[in-house]
Every structure is written in C-alpha cells, then in structure tokens.
Amino acid sequence: MAIFKKKEADAYNELDAKKNVSNVSDGMIRFNRVSPLANAMYSALFIFIAAICVLPVLFVIIISFTAEKSIGLYGYSFFPKQFSVASYQYVWNMRELVGRSILNSIGITVVGTCLGVILTATMGYALSRKSYKFRNFFTWFIFIPMLFRGGTLASYVVNTQVMHLKDTYWALILPICCTTFNIIIMRTFFTTTVPDEMIESGKIDGASQLRIFVQLVLPICLPAIATIALFLTFAYWNEWYNASIYLSTSRSDLFPLQFVLVSIEQKIQFLINNANYVGADAQDLPSETMRMAIVVIAVVPIMFSYPFFQKYYISGLTVGAVKG
C-alpha cells in the first residue's frame, strides 16, 4: 500500500487515492466495513451534528431578513411571518461607520497577514538550516514564550507605554502577527521539503542567504505560506480583543468590523451618540435586526471562503499538531 507512505498529504488526497486501489483491496475494504444499519445510524448522527453547527448561522441570516414588527410580535423565529430588507437599508445608511470598519478590517487583515508571513517564514527558514550556529538558541528563544507569558497587564503596559500603540492600527496588527506555533509549522515544512543540495548549489553560485530564501526556497514552499497566511487571515478578520483593549471608545474611525459589534452591544446608546452617521431618526431604528445584519456581513465572507481554503488549513494543523 504505497499510498500510505505519503506522509505530508492531507486526509482527503488519501481518501481519494483509496478509491483507485486495486480491486482486491477494494473488495477487502468492502468486506471490512460496518453493517449497513450502523452506517445509516452513523450518517444520521453526522448529519445531525453538522446541522447543529450550521443552524445558528442560518438562524441569524433569517433574523436579519425578518421585519422588525414580526420580531416584536413573535420574537426570533426560523419561519418569520414577514420578511424585510430594512435592516440592510439601515446598515447602508450607516455606511460611514460600517463601511469604514469593513475597510479597516480588510486593511488590518492584509497588512497583518503580509507582515506575519514575512516574520514567520524568515525565522522558520533560519531554524530549518542545520548548519546555522544559533539554531538551538533560537529554537529555545521562540519556545520559551509558549511556556511563560507576561500576561494581559504586562503586555498592555509595554504596548501602550513603551511602544505607544494605543489608538493606532498597529495595536491591532502587531500583537498577534507572529506565533511560535506558526514558526514551528514553517520550520517543519522547510526541513521536510527543501533539499540541502538546493541550498548548497545556491551557495556555490554565490547567492546570499536572502537571495536563496527569496528565489529558491519560497517558490517551492507556497503551500506552507498559504497555510500560514490563512491562519493569519482568519485571526485578523475575527480580531476584536486587542481592539477592545487598545482603542478608545471615541475612536470609532479605527474600529474593525467585529469590534463594531462589540461596541454596539456594549453601548446600545452607540447609535444615538453617533446620530450624525444615521440618516433616519435613531428612535425607530431596527436595532435588533440591524445588529444581526452586521453579524451576517461579518460571517458571510468566512462562510463562503473556508470550504475552499480548508485543505491548506488542515495540512497546517496536522503538521503543527503531529510534528510540533
């Protein structure tokens, strides 16, 4: 069964490969499987669990399209009596705030992901070189923060007083752009896929390590880069914690999308304070449905993108967890 020797391949390539096994093993697989009854029960179980995972998202989407009146009378329901797109119209009216926050989120995600990939890949590459004299030292150097952390307060003090990150975009970007876990994934990938001969040949041709890294190593490591980039993209898109610590409530021009949700909830008064953003009278805002509409706006990009990217995500997870 040569297919099982392939180490780095993710789960599904192997599942597909299984189909192509010779008829003998095919018969073996058919013989060695659970009874049809058990299969039906297991399938039902998984459909049930999958439904539990997806229904809340559908529920919120339905709520965001429900008329405010219908909610006032019957509450949230999977089968609303009256549909309406009023909530999205109000979000559109608030585009100065919501639109700005979407742009903030996109900007933070792009800049943070690029920066994080650079920091992760360079360190990962240096640690993957066996001839590197400081290899041991730096492996411990990145590993110790995994064991011991300064904690919320200490980070807050350093970031605000030493680096003056308060009320800047950098406060949302820098603290989460690099992790030991990601560097280990990168290092593992470089050690397993980049042949030493290639580096040597680069050296013989007189290339510097930077040049070898950029021109020889990176092109063949795009899958690993994609994995790290995905980890970071989702982390930045979902970022709200640092925003709640480092951004003042008055700086709504810096808010990322997820933090707009937090701040709306924290202060229902938010809209009234920012009445100049809203075209309509703050009194008859469909606040409940509108909040759900913003939730939908935050969820939809993730929902429709992750099925296509999860392959890279999974390969990163398995490398990191199994070989970390």
Partner: peptide, 12 residues
C-alpha cells in the same frame, strides 16, 4: 518582535 511582545512583558 519576540523581544518586544514576549520577553519585555515578562518583566511586567
């Protein structure tokens, strides 16, 4: 990055 965001806060 590690010094600023991991090691300096340790003294905190």
């Amino acid at each position: 990055w590690f010094i600023m965001f991991c090691y300096v806060p340790m003294f905190g």
